[in-house]
Design a binder for these strands. Structure first.
Length: 291
DNA sequence: AACTACTCCTGGAGGC
DNA sequence: TGCCTCCAGGAGTAGT
């Protein structure tokens, strides 16, 4: 999924709904979707209280009582929906199946029951996501091993930090570089395309070819795109097509549509196996990257 | 260092 | 309707 804005909005929604509550039951229907650390099983979750919910890149980390932690990664198609008294009170991740659909869905792999009777459903039609129950220390070590880069929502994510990232990977092309979680945390296919469109930078530009003004523009575009999603609602792209009823995202999932900035046609290319959308007219300069 | 191909899965969309 | 192909908001691994 779920990229940074989806995970962050989910974190906020769960923060206000499940913190302070205890797990009273867990139903794992597909074993590989729930991984337990050494000497742990799903039943160790019982009576653990949710103390804190944080995010590292696209990882969602639930800090629990008893020195435990529960980590979710939704990958391409994971979603979490919290239902209380028959109503969806928190939801996030991949929007298929729709958040209001009856649960459990046939692709609901894990159901968590909380002490107020609410249920948290972990659904993933493609089974690429996972959750992991670990000792807190192991969770910290696991996340450290991911070498997750600076978080664009962090106050410390300055133009200078971005410039440092670009300098370390001078020859890398912008799109794959920004998708690399070790460079910058949380960006995925949609928001990278959107940030590059917003910055008017070609996805094939070499990182080292940007002048200081372009670096500043890219920084503003990354932060601005993510904040826009958090403020105005996350991008809705289903099966590669952006929601035609909205103007966000502007480029991703809109091949052939007029660019909102210059009215040129949005193009789609394949880059590292991923669909990449951009406006050839106002995101020029791929060839200058080679020089 | 950087890039490509392949892998894990299911399901929706479109062509015929 | 069926059957086929392609594509999908992630990321790890292996090979060049």
């Amino acid at each position: 999924m779920p990229e940074l804005p989806e995970v962050e909005s989910l974190r906020r929604a769960l923060q206000s709904t499940i913190v302070g509550h205890r797990f009273v039951g867990v139903d794992v229907r597909l074993a590989k979707m729930f991984r337990a650390g050494e000497w742990l099983t799903a039943s160790d979750l019982r009576s653990a209280r949710v103390e804190q919910i944080s995010r590292r890149g696209k990882h969602l980390l639930l800090t629990l009582s008893g020195g435990l932690a529960l980590i979710f990664h939704l990958r391409l198609a994971g979603q979490l929906v919290l239902v209380r008294d028959g109503e969806v009170v928190a939801a996030g991740g991949h929007p298929v199946p729709a958040f209001g659909s009856p649960l459990p869905h046939r692709s609901t792999h894990v159901t968590f029951e909380l002490d107020d009777g609410s249920r948290l459903y972990f659904t993933d039609i493609r089974q690429f996501g996972f959750c992991r129950l670990m000792r807190l220390g192991d969770a910290a070590r696991y996340l450290a091993d991911q070498e997750i880069g600076p978080d664009p929502l962090d106050a410390g994510f300055s133009v200078e930090v971005l410039a440092g990232v670009l300098t370390r990977r001078q020859k890398a092309r912008l799109k794959p570089l920004l998708l690399d979680q070790r460079s910058i945390a949380g960006l995925g296919n949609i928001y990278v395309d959107e940030a590059l469109w917003r910055a008017a930078l070609h996805p094939l530009r070499a990182a080292g070819s940007l002048d200081p003004d372009e670096v500043r523009r890219l920084h503003e575009a990354i932060v601005g795109t993510l904040q826009h999603a958090l403020t105005h609602g996350v991008a809705r792209v289903i099966n590669g097509r952006a929601d035609p009823a909205r103007d966000f995202p502007a480029a991703h999932g809109r091949e052939g549509d007029p660019c909102p900035r210059c009215r040129g046609a949005i193009a789609r290319i394949r880059l590292g196996g991923r669909s990449t959308y951009f406006c050839p007219a106002c995101q020029p300069g791929a060839t200058s990257a080679a020089s």
